[in-house]
Write a protein that binds this DNA or RNA. Sequence first.
DNA 1: AGACTAACCTGAAAGC
DNA 2: TGCTTTCAGGTTAGTC
Length: 292
Amino acid sequence: MPELPEVEVTRRRIEGVLRGRKIARLRTTADSYFFVTPAAKLRSALAGRTVSCLDRIGKYLVASLDDGARLLLHLGMTGQLFSETVQSPRLLSATARASLTPEAQRDGFQPDAHTHLRFEFADGGPRVFMRDVRKFGKVIWLAPGADHPRLARLGPDALEVSGEGLFRAGRKRRATIKALLLDQSVLAGCGNIYADESLFLAGVRPGRAAGRVTRRECDRIASALRGVLLRSIESGGSTISDYVAPDGSDGAYQDERRVYAREGEPCLECGTPVRKKVVAQRGTHYCPSCQR
DNA sequence: AGACTAACCTGAAAGC
DNA sequence: TGCTTTCAGGTTAGTC
């Protein structure tokens, strides 16, 4: 599931393909939950525009256009943004991959029915695609100067998280520390995997009431979170943006997971079996011995 | 206001 | 074998 590191790695890969290029035409699938801005509006608004830069705000990618408008892309759970020059057959499910010719399996991706955006450029060069099987992702066009509540709500970037900020946000909360980390208005970019991983590294149980987590523990959580996010961005440079399996079992960061999707396996610190339970309406993994 | 739930969507995996 | 159920989770709207 794309969280901050996956979105950031995607941004770094795609920015160079988008910047300075004039969009000749955008092809889309039919209107759906995915299109916050209706597909027809999107097609007309983007035709002829040039992308000036691609930024990241929390888990949103923000493309700035030469007319001052912006395009927000959210990858949701299964969203993928890629270009013809960044290909990988691993983008496909095992079933879909098996249906490809050996050549296609080796050489890369073929757009399919789940490819909701296809950017074609005036230079005739590599196209850019956005694919999202489950359509939890979002595409939003913002008129010049326009804001959007989705952006306005976001808290500080998770890479900038401070123990003090976490502690303050948690003071008046009865909900869990895990819920606090997942709250995008508290910090933008943290998702389920990195919430679990950082709480493990900080030695704090996900189910603890946020209001009862000490300042010292908040410092540890903030430090651990920054660490895992940065480390994941580094390791994600190779493969993680190509594909992240729904269970998080694939992608470069898998080798560094301490607790996520390791239920029943021994804790790497103490050997106690990793436990899984639902916290904050999410599958949550922790070591009952190392985390207090 | 904070906290919880349902809904959105599809495919893989588990259950029968 | 094949059909059915469960599960995965980012975000928001609605409700208490």
